[in-house]
Amino acid sequence: MSASQLVGAETAKDLDEPGRGTSWLRYVAMKAGGSLFSLVMVVLLGFFAFRILPGDPVRSLADGRQVTAEQMDILRKQYGLDQPVIAQFWRYLTDLFRGNLGDSYTYNRPVMELILDRLGPTLLLTGTAAALSVVLGLWLGQRTAWRRGSMFDKAHTGIALTLWSVPTFWLGLLMLLIFGGTLHWFPTGGMVTAGSTATGLAYVWDVARHLTLPMLTMVAVVYAQYLMVMRASLLEEMSADYLVTARAKGLREDQVRRKHAVPNALLPTVTLIFLTLGGLIGGAVTVETVFSWPGLGYLTFQALSAPDFPLLQGTFVVFSSIVIIMNFFADILYRVLDPRLRTA
């Protein structure tokens, strides 16, 4: 290449031309690899963490009953607890691959079956609560940011932060007391009325009535974080130069907000939403317990009070896997939303 070619008019244009980034396949493979590694760690932790816990499961199983040493040995043998830890671990791994999480001590049923039974109610509760709080939080977040300093802003951030700082169980009990106990507007526990044989719409109506209080409790506690993050990231975007460009072009104020500011402000919020969705299911433990909601959280609570190791192991692995999978989705979605990541 001669010197004059080197410094042609196009030099600078080509010199600092940014290159294309990694391919989709590569990106997904990388993120999936990372998630898989986390899952393996969870499986390992799930086994060993519960072995370190103090307490002899067989003794607590037999708690309050007259049992002979022989009977204890039989129980140990039945659950494989007489074998060395390494052998137990091997069995745990091979079973896990076959989708078998062992048998619950307290329910005498396969853990997998129990978890699948309870997964539906949990997904129903956390799904509706998450959807509602995300919509509410993001909507209020952008309104408060756009009208920063107004009464609307002050009132809403105030209310949201108060609810956010209230203990979940306390708020749940208060709701129970007022709307369930005193006013009798809603049932106080469970997912369906005991002994009810309703089907079709009547069944849906019954579940919806039972769902209302636990769901509202969850929404009240978590929507604040969506509001605050959306508000903060929109405030940050509001001084951005490209909004001046948009205004100069003649866009209306609400178009400037909807078409330019919000899409950018949503980026950090999306990650947070997915991170908290996983956490929300974990947080269901308190709400489900307070409202006797027959979900995974309630199951975990019961497993903890036993303690029922296979069941705890099972719920632990399921909860953690949900969080990891949610993070994986967040990574993928973030790349879809933010073109800059595609070349990063």
């Binding site: 130069d241 490209y242 001046v244 460009t245 100069a248 330019h260 950018n264 980026l267 800059r340």
Partner: peptide, 11 residues
Amino acid sequence: FQGAMHSLNPV
């Protein structure tokens, strides 16, 4: 506008 960097919407 000046900011070639910032005056265009990045997304």
